[in-house]
Amino acid sequence: MFGLTFDKLLIVAVIAAFVIGPERLPTYAAKLGGLVRSLRDFANGAKSRMREEMGPEFDEVDWKKLDPRQYDPRRIIREALLEDSPAPASSIKPVTQSAYAQRAARTLQAGAVPPFDSEST
C-alpha cells in the first residue's frame, strides 16, 4: 500500500507519538480506533446491502476474479492474441495495385448513378 512497509509505519508511529505527546496520545488513539471501527462497519453494511439487493446470486459471484489487483494487461493481451485463430490463407489476397490505382480503376458505367449515402449528408 503506497510502498509503506511495517518498518516505515513503525517509524511514523514513533514520530507521531513524540509530536503528539503523552498527554494527547490516548485521545488520538481512541479517535483512530473509532475511525477504523466505523470504516469496518461501513464495509460490512455495504456488503450486507449488496447481499440483500442481489439475493441468492451474491454467493455465486466469484469476487476474487473481479479484484482489480488481479489485472495484468500483459496477460490479458497475450490471452486475447492466442485465442484468435489465424485467418484462412484463401481469404488473403496479394496486393498488386495501390489503393489509389484500385479506386481509379472503378469507373461508373454509362448512365449509372453514383452511390449516395443519405445519412452522411
Rank of each mutant, 00 (worst) to 15 (best):
R49N: 02
R49Q: 08
R49D: 00
M50Q: 09
M50A: 12
R51N: 05
R51Y: 03
E52D: 03
E52M: 01
E52W: 04
E53P: 04
E53V: 01
E53T: 03
E53D: 08
M54P: 01
M54V: 01
M54H: 03
G55R: 00
G55Q: 00
G55C: 04
G55V: 03
P56I: 11
P56L: 10
P56W: 10
P56S: 14
E57L: 09
D59V: 02
E60R: 02
E60I: 06
V61L: 12
V61Q: 07
V61Y: 10
D62R: 00
D62E: 08
D62Y: 04
W63P: 03
W63Y: 05
K64T: 13
K64R: 07
K64P: 09
K64E: 15
K64L: 13
K65Y: 09
K65A: 13
L66T: 05
L66S: 03
L66M: 10
L66P: 03
D67G: 07
D67E: 10
D67R: 05
P68C: 09
R69G: 13
R69K: 10
R69P: 08
Q70V: 13
Y71Q: 00
Y71L: 06
Y71P: 01
Y71S: 01
Y71F: 11
Y71I: 09
D72P: 05
D72C: 08
D72V: 09
D72N: 14
P73Y: 06
P73H: 07
R74N: 14
R74F: 13
R74G: 14
R75E: 13
I76T: 09
I76G: 05
I76W: 10
I77H: 14
I77K: 14
R78W: 13
R78H: 13
A80C: 04
A80E: 08
A80K: 06
A80I: 02
A80R: 07
L81N: 12
L81A: 10
L81W: 10
L81H: 02
L81V: 10
L81Q: 12
L82K: 12
D84C: 08
D84I: 09
S85K: 15
P86W: 00
P86I: 11
P86S: 07
P86L: 08
P86A: 06
A87I: 15
A87N: 06
A87W: 04
P88K: 00
P88W: 04
A89V: 14
A89S: 13
A89P: 11
A89D: 15
S90G: 05
S90C: 05
S90K: 07
S90F: 10
S91T: 11
S91V: 12
S91C: 06
S91W: 05
